[in-house]
């Protein structure tokens, strides 16, 4: 994508480009940066939540059944969840374009 459009004009930008709305990072979806996605094998998962704890993007969240599901709008595909999973229940697979 050619980046030629500004999000807003400089006159409307806060002083020093400060962000005055807390938690607004969630408005910025960075999942498109990903080259690999995590696939969870629910049969193998022991629902320990390490993926949720270690994810640097806080992309994982509990789904109510005790599992932790990755939100692909934010997952950058770093693979830390797969690396940290103690039972190998998460596999990183190449994103197909």
């Amino acid at each position: 994508m050619v980046k030629i459009d500004a999000i807003m004009g400089w006159k409307k930008l806060n002083l020093g480009a400060a962000i005055t709305e807390p938690g607004s990072a969630s408005l910025f979806k960075t999942g498109s940066w990903r080259t690999q996605r995590p696939i969870l094998d629910k049969e193998a998962c022991i629902r320990c939540g390490r993926c949720w704890i270690y994810c640097p993007e806080a992309a994982y969240s509990p789904n109510g059944d005790g599992y932790f599901i990755c939100n692909l709008d934010y997952c950058k595909g770093c693979g830390i969840c797969a690396e940290e999973c103690p039972v190998g229940a998460i596999t990183m697979v190449l994103e197909e374009i």
Partner: peptide, 15 residues
Amino acid sequence: ITMGPVGVPEIYSEA
């Protein structure tokens, strides 16, 4: 508030 955030190409020029 956040001061000095990441300035992606769509906002760095304006900053």
